[in-house]
Design a protein around this nucleic acid. Structure first.
Lengths: 226, 226
DNA sequence: CAAGATGTATACGGCAGAGTCCACCTATGG
DNA sequence: CCATAGGTGGACTCTGCCGTATACATCTTG
């Protein structure tokens, strides 16, 4: 930039085989898209993220939409590879799979569930996945929850809460990975219990005062190993 | 008759006072923005939603950003009006307030927590609100959860799960509004419990095997594992 | 009724970003 | 060592949309 004359290249211009480059672009695009979604992310940003020029993008993808679809497909593939047990619901295994994908590619995970899900042009595919999950959840929940509207609520809310909890887990630095699947599962179960009971509720380890728990914060140190 | 091209208007051209029109535009913009977010929503769409011309928008707002900010401010105002209790965390009252806002303006609620939160240009304001909530939650949760990383996770995940559960409640047709606040609170508590225990977990109504098999991936073939 | 506020229709400038083209460079592998 | 696939850089068109301007119609109110 400072010198318009052609300088010898300081960096030796890394080259990759076609397939590798394609993967690398998808990976870079995942990061870029995850920051601001489809519309607000320009191809130049993506190219920069991948360390190449916009022109090169078109050597591998027909259009911006095509690239985005490829990114989404890649993530969906991963999910399905890890959760492909024929729609059977929330097993620890399937949650483990979800978590593996999430920790393998946090950006992709966010992209799927925070952006792509709201983008009218692309949400169809992901919503299908999500509906499958909700449907599976409903089959498990319906026998337990007499009110059908509440059962449907729980079937929607439980996966959503699980995904949010997973994202929060990523944000928190993935603490205690050994038990995180069980924890996420407990979050989902909390939703089901919420659908069931209208009882008075209190925080664990506290007497049943519903309100103003902050006044009696007792510091319990159970010393659980982590 | 000076202009032959002008047809007699079939609809009598409804007019409103300035303040009313402004509110109506904000309301229409809320709906429009809620569908696809800031960037992907054009002013023409909004104008159409409001039943007016794009030009009229500029009689009330300086720019697209200004309009968006106004929409967001309006929602934040509402939230703060309902939850203004000095940062005190998850009381049933504050959740009630959240739910009132959500059911008053589902589109606005979604806009805030599904779109604006991810839009780099605007997320600051909403993230501030969210951080306040998380901080309040942390103050309640920290004494209960020995591991600080887990406490921070729960402080993030609990509000997020609560908001998702609220949105799912809207989607489900707002069933049983009398107890929904308690249910949402139970969802949040479920997260805290998840942060606490590494115990074996099962759906309500099933025999509980005590502790001891934390890492053991047992597969209950009751078909109800979640 | 006159004035002013409100709304319509249309056209235009400008800019950012998608998508294309071309001339040229250079690792890399057979 | 040479052919080629993989890459650079810039200039170009085209489109969509923001933002502005102008001219005209019509409801409302003092």
């Amino acid at each position: 930039m400072t010198d318009p004359t052609v300088e010898p290249r300081d960096e030796p211009v890394r080259r990759m085989k076609r397939a590798d480059r394609r993967e690398q672009i998808i990976s870079a695009a995942t990061e870029a898209f995850a920051r601001s979604g489809f519309t607000a992310t320009s191809l130049d940003e993506i190219a920069e993220e991948a360390g190449i020029t916009r022109v090169v993008l078109y050597r591998h993808f027909d259009s911006k939409s095509d690239l985005y679809q490829s990114v989404l497909d890649k993530m969906c593939e991963r999910l399905e590879a890890h959760i492909d047990e024929p729609v059977e619901g929330f097993t620890d295994e399937s949650i483990d799979g979800l978590l593996r994908v999430a920790s393998d590619s946090p950006a992709g995970f966010r992209l799927l569930f925070q952006h792509a899900l709201r983008e009218t042009e692309f949400k169809e595919r992901i919503e299908k996945f999500r509906n499958d999950v909700s449907e599976a959840a409903y089959l498990q929940i319906a026998p337990l929850v007499p009110d059908d509207a509440l059962a449907r609520w729980a079937a929607q809310a439980a996966p959503a809460a699980a995904i949010e909890a997973t994202i929060a887990w990523l944000d928190a630095g993935q603490p205690d990975p050994a038990h995180v699947a069980a924890r996420i599962r407990k979050v989902a179960i909390g939703v089901v219990e919420a659908a069931l009971s209208t009882d008075d509720i209190s925080l664990p380890g506290q007497p049943t005062s519903r309100r103003d728990q902050r006044d009696e914060q007792q510091h319990q140190d159970s010393g659980q190993d982590m």
